[in-house]
């Protein structure tokens, strides 16, 4: 799973990155977390309001910092835990 946090580096983007890391740790999921800060790339995802969360090249949330429970739900639906 490749996760990207889109945003120029304002406080909201850092909050989202930290929250995503925590959610990953709690789930025990290993994933690559990448920060995308350059505007042309951000725009190419169709994102007009930062921060945005991208999981496996799919934008799941933009324009706000979602709650921890929401992030967990995004991560789970992208990669269901092994049963």
């Amino acid at each position: 799973m490749i996760i990207k946090v889109l945003g120029p580096g304002c406080r909201n983007c850092r909050d989202l990155e930290a929250a995503t890391r925590r959610a990953l740790d709690e789930l025990g999921t290993s994933a690559e977390l990448e920060k995308v800060t350059d505007y042309p790339t951000i725009a190419r995802y169709g994102v007009m309001a930062t921060p945005a969360l991208v999981i496996d090249e799919r934008v799941v949330c933009s324009g706000r910092v979602p709650g921890a429970d929401e992030i967990t739900a995004f991560l789970l639906s992208a990669s269901p835990p092994p049963t």
Binding site: A43, R44, Y45, G46, V47, A52, V59, C61, S62, R64
Partner: peptide
Amino acid sequence: PFVFETRLDGQVIDATAGLTFEQRIRM
């Protein structure tokens, strides 16, 4: 110039669509 050359590939996601009232209060 790069602004005009940018192609929007990603699907547009509405930032606030489908939020519950609880989420709006939390926001």
